[in-house]
Design a protein around this nucleic acid. Structure first.
Length: 190
DNA sequence: GCATCGATGGTG
DNA sequence: ACCATCGATGCA
């Protein structure tokens, strides 16, 4: 599902207008046995939505300041979810806004731009004010370890992060890695 | 470009 | 006492 969601379009309707964002980066959290998944510690008030039916939004707060948006993906009692980490603002929105559209290249920036907060936790993503429409899949998808889950023991390195290899909006931890790769060897020891 | 740090609040 | 983060800062 994390892979499938790449290229799909997240739509957010507010009082003022309707914003569209193409999903370019996701992470899978694959259930109770996944030590990076919040549900690894069982059913709690926070994680309850993940244990419910698929197609709902799981929205929670990290670091005291950022709301994270996830899509619940598995069946009831099987707590799996996909974190939406980055989007590209729809080109039409940029035109209507006169060019100035907030960046969505990170899970926190994305929710801020789309005005997604915890009051949408549990929301059914098949209807307004927040839903997902089909799009076109990226031609090249890259896979890697998830961000910020070093504590998750053998799950820390699992290749569960998916991103559009050609998107400029993929979140920051990747550009750091790519740029250091591009830089090549630090010195030529002759 | 890269490393480091502080803000800030819910969770268990 | 942790954190599925971000922006600012300092240095190269």
């Amino acid at each position: 599902m994390a892979r499938e969601l790449l290229g799909a379009v997240l739509v957010r309707r507010t009082q003022k207008d309707t914003l569209r964002a193409r999903i370019v980066e996701t992470e899978a959290y694959v259930g109770q046995h996944d030590l990076a998944c919040h549900a690894a510690r069982g059913l709690t008030e926070r994680t309850a939505v993940m244990f419910g039916p698929p197609g709902r939004a799981y929205v929670y707060l990290v670091y005291g300041m950022h709301d994270m948006l996830n899509v619940v993906t598995a069946g009831e009692g099987d707590p799996q979810a996909v974190l939406i980490r980055a989007c590209e603002p729809h080109s039409g929105d940029a035109e209507r806004a006169g060019g100035a559209v907030e960046r969505m290249d990170g899970p926190g920036r994305l929710t801020k731009a789309l005005l997604v907060t915890r009051d949408l936790n549990g929301h059914d993503l098949n209807r307004p004010p927040l839903w997902i429409e089909a799009g076109s899949p990226p031609p090249r998808v890259e896979v890697g370890p998830r961000v910020g889950v070093d504590y998750a023991a053998e799950w820390a390195d699992a290749p569960l992060r998916f991103f559009d290899a050609d998107s400029q909006a993929v979140s920051r931890s990747r550009s750091r890695r790519l740029s250091s790769e591009r830089a090549g060897p630090k010195a030529n020891l002759t």
